[in-house]
Amino acid sequence: MSEVAPMTEASPEPTQEEEEATKRGLGIAAWLAIGWLGCMVFLAVSASFLPLDDPINGSIRETPGVSYFTEGHIFGNDLLGRDTLARVVVGTSTSLSIAALSIGFGTLIGGFVGLVAGYVGGRIGTALSAMFDILLAFPPLLLALTLVSVLSPVTETDPPSRIKRMLVVALAVGLVSIPILARITRANALSWSQREFVMAAKSQGAKPFRIMLREVLPNVVPAMLSVALLGLASVIIVEGGLALFGLSINPPDPSWGNMVASQVDDLGETPHVWIVPSVFIFLSVMSLNLLGDVVRDKFAVREAAI
C-alpha cells in the first residue's frame, strides 16, 4: 500500500500555489506600479485640497503665456498662463474618476449578469450570453462616441456641467466594458459551478442566490479583478480617444485626455503641456496592465477562459 501514501502526503494544490506565490513575491516592478497608482489615487482624492494654482483661469498675477520649468511652476504654464501641474492633478481626478466609475459600473452589471449566466446556465444562460455577444459586436469607441454625443450634446447656450459630462462618459465607456466583464465572469462561474462543493452546499439546502454569492462569486473575484484592472487601463486610453473628438470633459476643465488633445495642432511649440499628461497616462496604463498580469498569474486565471 506504499503507493497510496505519497498521494496524501503531497501537499494539496492550493498550498503549492500559495507557496510559489510567496516565494516569487510581487517583484519590484509590481511594487513600483502600486506606488505610482497610489500616488495617482492620492492626487485624485486630494486635488481640491492641495495648494495648487487655479487650473482653469490661470494666475492673473503673472504674465500670461507659455513658460517652462520656472520656480513655482515645475511643469511650466500653457499658452493661457495656466499651471500645468495644477491642470494635470485636477485632470488626474477627472480621468481616474471616469475610469473607476465606468469600470465599477461595468463590473457590477457585467459581473452580475455573467454570474447568473454562468451559474443558472440553460436557456437563461444562453440568452444572456447572446446579449453580451451582441454588445461586443459594436465597435467600442464608436459606441462610446455615439452615446456621449447623444446623451450630452455640447450646445453654446447650455454646455453640460463637468459632473454631468463625467457621468455620461463613464456610463458610455462602462456600457462598452459590460460584455467583456460578463464573459470572463460567466466563463469562471460556469467552471466553479461544476465543483463538488457547490453541490455540497446545495445538498445542505442553500438557495441558488446564496450559492451564487457565497460559493461561486468569491472564487470568481480574482479573474474579475484582473480583467477590471486591464479595463481601467483601457478606459484611460479611451478617454484620450474621446477627448480628441472633443467628447470627453469640456475644454476649460482638464482631463489627461483633453490636455493632450488641446495641443494636437501644435505639438512643437509647447511640448511640456502634452508631454506631462502623456507621461501620466503612459505610466498609469503600464502600471495597471502590469498589476492586471500579476493578479492573473497569482490566481492562475486562465487566458482561455476569457
Binding site: 492550493p14 453541490m199 455540497a200 445538498s203 439546502g205 468569491p218
Partner: peptide, 19 residues
C-alpha cells in the same frame, strides 16, 4: 436537504469551498 437528509461526498479535496 440538510435537515432531513444530507450527503457526504466522495472527494473531500473538492467538496469544500476553497475560499
Amino acid at each position: 436537504w440538510g435537515t432531513q437528509m444530507s450527503m457526504v461526498f466522495q472527494d473531500p479535496m473538492t467538496a469544500l469551498n476553497p475560499v
